[in-house]
Design a protein around this nucleic acid. Structure first.
Lengths: 215, 215
DNA sequence: CGCGAGTGTAGAACGTGTTACAGTTTCTTG
DNA sequence: CAAGAAACTGTAACACGTTCTACACTCGCG
């Protein structure tokens, strides 16, 4: 496993917005942010069309209108690329959620609502989901940071859904389990080992058991 | 995604052992069974030494002393190969378990024992675990059968651990969730996003919540 | 015994992720 | 604005999974 490839570090200190590194987005010049956006756009477009295999680095570079070497400077591997794409999708989904009120009488009902909604959203674009979810699961240590970012996004999403301000360690542990179950079910769905109904049932069961203990 | 590659179908009707296709093992002549064994041995040896990346098809073929084409006739892809390797490891672990009495006063305690034991077992060979677990998660539809076989092995293991003769649908659903959580935690451990202690804690928590409901 | 189908072998060839590099453009800084 | 650094570009090269081809071996059966 050879070489490196750092993210562009052109501008030293940007006109500081206080936020540290929310998603690796607010780094670099406008042109760089735009390149990054184009790259992820191209990635998601290709993924949506043909799944994991269709996301070919040369194709991404061409569609994003950057050189192959530049692509690798921004994203050191195909995995980084796709996991970052997943992160962006989750960010967007989260933004949408912020603007809506989540129905449900209990926290677990609201969590189920959010899970169901996002699951259906992803199932509407099977190829894209296949590409992102498989990359997420296949990620190696070099992409651990990106994977963890996605993990945090899921945590936040769950916390918001359940109306929890700042989760305790115990809360986070449960979120973690829910996230694991969710992702595992998406993997099973993506590989056609589970139907959409299976996924819904298993999520329902898991959330119920994990949150509505003494029933 | 081109070509095929069927498993060898040399001998027409084997001297029938009633069992249908327990693990794809009892097919073919003695020489063929031996080739298959050698191939998986080579795979696990290489995986143990250098993980997923070290399992290179040419290397496997050479170490197993078969031609590359033959390797592909037996296992149509690297993923099939590694997932089959995982299946064999689980079969062996299961056999060992059969011969020991599982300690624990409650079903959930016994399940935890089995989970913990196997987790530690796998953690003793990080490279091997990395190779098998990542392949398992990355598997595409073409390897769904192999993945499901591993799923069944886990189900059986859990059922045996808990002393359940033939699991109900509800039992299986729970096993499925436990398996998902287990694998997800192994993935996290393999990519160094979770420590061994993290894994143990999360398994404990999950099993507790999933099985010891009204506490 | 000799044929034919199925299996195995060796090795070339191809595709795609990744790296390397030489030259050009763009930024930063004094 | 000039010099140097950093970022980009285009392109070749390399590695490894996978496929293909041509030939050899084996074994059951007529």
């Amino acid at each position: 496993m050879p070489g490196k490839a750092k993210a562009p570090t052109g501008a030293k200190a940007r006109s500081g917005n206080g936020l540290s590194a929310l998603s690796g987005d607010e780094l670099g010049s406008a042109a760089q942010r735009d390149r990054r956006r184009r790259i992820i756009d191209a990635t998601l477009t290709l993924a949506s069309k043909g799944g994991y295999d269709a996301v070919q680095m040369r194709a991404v570079a061409e569609k994003a209108d950057v050189a192959l070497g530049t692509l690798y400077r921004y994203f050191p591997s195909k995995i980084h690329l796709l996991v970052s794409g997943l992160a962006r999708e989750f960010e967007r989904a989260q933004e949408k959620l912020e603007r809506a009120t989540i129905p449900g009488d209990t926290p677990s009902e609201r969590l189920m609502f959010v899970l169901g909604r996002n699951t259906r959203l992803m199932q509407r674009d099977p190829h894209l989901t296949e590409a992102m979810v498989r990359a997420f699961m296949f990620a190696d240590t070099t992409a651990a940071a990106e994977v963890e970012q996605v993990g945090r996004l899921m945590e936040n999403m769950f916390a918001k859904a359940m109306g929890i301000e700042d989760p305790t360690e115990a809360d986070r542990d449960i979120f973690h389990v829910v996230a694991d179950v969710w992702m595992a079910n998406l993997v099973a769905w993506v590989t056609r080992r589970a139907s959409a109904a299976d996924v819904a049932n298993r999520l329902e069961l898991s959330v119920h058991l994990l949150l509505d203990k003494s029933v």
